[in-house]
């Protein structure tokens, strides 16, 4: 456990020692606000809920989560510091989990900083807090899912740009596969396939959490996704950490 905490602490600190964290937070908060108010017609809809805000999260995360994930292992391998890290008394699993957790906490901080949205709502009307809380929980879980995918692709290559592009594509596919337009197109050909694809995409699991429903199947989807990709990441690193 010591290894896990050590790696997690170092990673989290290093976000804030470099400009990475601040640039990231400013851009994230800007777009979260811009999309909600300008593209989502937040005021015009005259509803005291955050559906609009959360509905843009998948799109935003597709680009922004791979930004945090791309450096996790690619940078470590490129600079050779992986040799230092993995000759300290730290196992690969501890290191993978530690780095993942640090990045996830960081994304959690980014989400918490959007607290002005619920505050605004509370001032303007009387929102139903249930869906807001499950919305945040869903967004956090989704960020974790994207992050696990991102850290897998980051371990795949030494090149951060390649790792970024691969994870954007992978996350994008998982989100857009569940969009109604895609699904209706596929269901014309084969309704069964459409059903399978829908249950594998982020969209449907995230949507149901936005309605304020926490279902076991949604939670297991995200947890399973995270566990699966992190496990693959461990195997990948074990195989090719020196290459």
């Amino acid at each position: 456990m010591n290894g896990f905490f050590t790696v997690c602490k170092r990673e989290l600190k290093s976000y804030f020692m470099t400009p990475v964290a601040y640039v990231f937070l400013v851009i994230f908060l800007f777009f979260a606000g811009y999309l909600t108010f300008n593209k989502g017609f937040f005021f015009e809809s005259r509803q005291a809920d955050m559906r609009v805000f959360f509905s843009f999260m998948p799109l935003l995360f597709v680009f922004i989560v791979p930004c945090t994930a791309m450096r996790l292992w690619a940078e470590e391998r490129k600079s050779g510091s992986i040799e230092l890290l993995l000759t300290l008394p730290i196992t690969v699993t501890q290191a993978v989990l530690g780095k993942f957790m640090a990045a996830w906490i960081f994304l959690g901080i980014a989400l918490l900083l959007t607290f002005l949205m619920p505050v605004t709502l509370a001032n303007l009307g009387s929102p139903d807090y249930g869906p807001i809380i499950t919305g945040y929980l869903g967004s956090f879980l989704m960020a974790g899912g994207f992050l696990a995918i991102g850290s897998f692709f980051s371990a795949l290559t030494k090149n951060q740009v390649i790792s970024f592009i691969l994870s954007v594509v992978a996350c994008g596919i998982l989100v857009y596969a569940g969009m109604p337009s895609t699904l209706s197109y596929i269901s014309e050909m084969s309704p069964t396939t459409a059903g399978i694809i829908e249950s594998m995409s982020f969209q449907s699991h995230f949507e149901s959490m936005l309605r304020g429903v926490i279902e076991l199947k949604d939670i297991t989807f995200f947890v399973g996704l995270i566990a699966g990709f992190l496990m693959s990441c461990c195997i990948l690193l074990d195989e090719r950490k020196a290459a």
């Binding site: 290894g3 905490f5 050590t6 602490k9 170092r10 290093s14 008394p89 730290i90």
Partner: peptide
């Protein structure tokens, strides 16, 4: 880790 100071780097090694 290039972005760390010698101080924090050695503390990280001590942690590990």
């Amino acid at each position: 880790y290039g972005e760390m100071t010698v101080n924090s780097f050695l503390n990280f090694i001590c942690d590990a």
